[in-house]
């Protein structure tokens, strides 16, 4: 059975038995692009697919589905105790752990279909892929991925990855080798062409504040304008808010229409957190050590 067929079968089973009210997965959209799908009836499961183009981190929809009905006003209003199934890659599942740790998602109401993942292709979500075309490259996050088998799941699809799959060294474009002032110069120049579309924030599962600090009607922390100062403040501030929480799915960088190195910044901070605390977000449900460790003697979650 193909992965897609397995997913469809499981989704149909859970939907018809009433075990779940909704399955969040992937489908093929227009222009050959893969996109998120929300399946409510057993007869629609044929839409569900899973392949190397499933780049989206679907966990970003979980806080909406669980907490705030108004954001999600779905065609099928979910009952307060309804369960949701989600098709996830190992990187996305780490986001689920962070969300559980921060009380944004209820583990009991979630049924995780974890898929063993060899990687997602560069350009996924933005273009069609033709089978007979020459070799495509995997996304950067996939080339340096260290867990291809999900850490959490209620149902596992796939067994192991092919032995030829190599884990590359994390590529931070040599940022860590720059001096402090060189690094400052680099980062301060990166956000000029940002257009404050907030796609990076909206796509991120961990950016789920009901009201963003950087978008207040009273401009308390940052102005409304598209000036360089405002944009640096937003991106650098957001990176700090994500430090110890971001799981490196790289979706922020994929969705950015201006090609800003947003994920590079997050990964750089993740590197610092790992050095300081020996901590990687999402391995288990927990708060980031940056927000939870108050005394030196305290243990790492």
């Amino acid at each position: 059975m193909t992965i897609s067929a397995e997913i469809q079968a499981k989704a149909a089973e859970w939907l018809t038995s009433g075990d779940v009210a909704c399955v969040v997965g992937y489908e093929r959209g227009t222009h050959g692009r893969t996109r998120p799908a929300f399946i409510y009836q057993g007869e629609d499961v044929a839409r569900l697919i899973f392949d190397k183009t499933c780049t989206h981190n679907l966990t970003t929809y979980l806080p909406q589905l669980f907490n705030d009905g108004s954001l999600m006003k779905a065609t099928h209003k979910l009952a307060p105790d309804a369960s949701i199934a989600i098709i996830t890659k190992p990187c996305d599942i780490r986001a689920i752990n962070v969300l559980i740790g921060e009380n944004q998602v209820s583990r009991e109401r979630l049924k995780v279909i974890g898929v063993v993942c060899e990687g997602i292709l560069d350009g996924a979500g933005k273009r069609a892929f033709v089978e007979c075309e020459p070799i495509y490259t995997y996304q950067r996050r996939c080339r340096s991925c260290s867990e291809r088998v999900p850490l959490v799941y209620d149902f596992l699809i796939g067994e192991s990855v092919s032995p030829e799959l190599v884990q590359e060294e994390e590529n931070l474009r040599g940022i860590q080798d720059l001096t402090t002032s060189e690094r400052a110069k680099y980062w301060l120049a990166q956000f000029d062409r940002c257009i404050r579309c907030y796609a990076c924030r909206q796509v991120c599962p961990l950016c789920n504040c009901p009201a963003c600090l950087y978008e207040r009607d009273d401009s308390l922390w940052v102005g409304m304008g598209f000036g360089v100062d405002e944009k640096r403040t937003f991106h650098l501030g957001r990176a700090f808010h994500l430090a110890g929480r971001c799981v490196g799915c790289d979706e922020c960088e994929r969705v950015c229409p201006m090609g800003l190195p947003i994920s590079l910044l997050n990964r750089r901070l993740a590197q610092e957190i790992e050095t300081m605390f020996g901590y990687r977000p999402g391995i288990k449900p927990a708060f980031s050590p940056l927000t939870s460790i108050l005394q030196q003697e305290q243990g790492i979650p």
């Binding site: 006003k73 257009i195 579309c197 796609a199 229409p257």
Partner: peptide
């Protein structure tokens, strides 16, 4: 009912308008 359905995956960012 189609509006809620087609918008379900929308991220409410601003890329399209900008």
């Amino acid at each position: 009912a189609m509006w809620d359905e087609v918008a379900e995956r929308c991220l409410s960012c601003r890329i399209c308008a900008y």
